[in-house]
Deep mutational scan, measured.
Amino acid sequence: LQLFIKTLTGKTSTVEMEPSDTIENLKAKIQDKEGIPPDQQRLIFAGKQLEDGRTLSDYNIQKESTLHLVL
């Protein structure tokens, strides 16, 4: 599924993920695209901070969801 990652600067990146992927996997993919180390990334979806060990489906993240990346 395609996700949009929006940064505080207003920049939006697109990443392709599976519902079974963990937040950790997602942060690794963001690191590949943006060069931001996972330990500096905080991802927010629906007002919640996402935890590394959980999966996208745990948070009911659907295709074309927008996640907010806070550093």
Rank of each mutant, 00 (worst) to 15 (best):
Q49I: 15
G53W: 13
D21G: 09
M17T: 05
K63Y: 11
L69A: 02
G10P: 02
Q49W: 14
E24Y: 12
K29L: 10
I44G: 03
P38V: 15
L69T: 01
E64C: 11
E16V: 13
S57A: 14
L43P: 01
G53N: 12
R42L: 14
E24I: 11
L50M: 06
Q49S: 09
K11M: 11
K6Q: 11
I23Q: 00
T9N: 14
P19G: 08
K6V: 14
L50C: 01
S57R: 11
Q41N: 02
Q62D: 09
R54C: 08
L67T: 02
T55S: 09
Q2N: 11
F4W: 08
Y59V: 03
K11D: 09
Q49K: 08
K33I: 15
I5G: 01
Q62C: 04
T7Y: 14
H68S: 08
S13H: 15
L67I: 15
K11V: 10
L1I: 14
L56C: 00
R54M: 13
E34L: 15
E34G: 05
A28G: 08
Q31G: 09
D58G: 04
D52T: 06
E51M: 12
I5W: 03
L3C: 02
Q49C: 10
P37S: 07
L43R: 00
S57F: 09
Q62N: 09
H68G: 04
S20L: 09
Y59D: 01
K48T: 13
D52G: 07
I30K: 00
L3V: 09
K48M: 13
H68L: 15
V15P: 00
L43W: 06
V70K: 07
T14R: 11
R54L: 11
F45P: 01
G47Q: 04
E51P: 02
E16C: 12
Q62V: 13
G35D: 05
T22G: 03
K6S: 07
T55V: 07
Y59E: 03
E64P: 05
L67V: 13
N25D: 13
T9W: 14
I36G: 02
T12P: 04
K63C: 07
Q41K: 02
I30W: 02
F4A: 05
T55G: 03
D39P: 08
K63S: 15
P38N: 06
T14G: 04
I23A: 01
E34Q: 11
I61D: 02
V70A: 07
T66F: 07
D21V: 03
S13W: 15
I44K: 05
L8Y: 12
T55H: 06
Q31D: 04
E16I: 13
K29F: 06
E51W: 05
D39Y: 11
T14M: 14
G10W: 03
V15S: 01
E24L: 14
Q40Y: 10
I44P: 00
I44C: 10
T22M: 06
G10E: 04
R42E: 08
Q31S: 12
D58K: 02
L26D: 00
L56T: 01
D21H: 05
I61K: 02
Q40T: 08
D58Q: 06
L43G: 00
Q40F: 10
P19K: 08
A46D: 14
L71V: 13
T14V: 14
L67S: 01
S13R: 09
N25F: 12
E64M: 12
Q2R: 14
D39V: 10
V70Y: 14
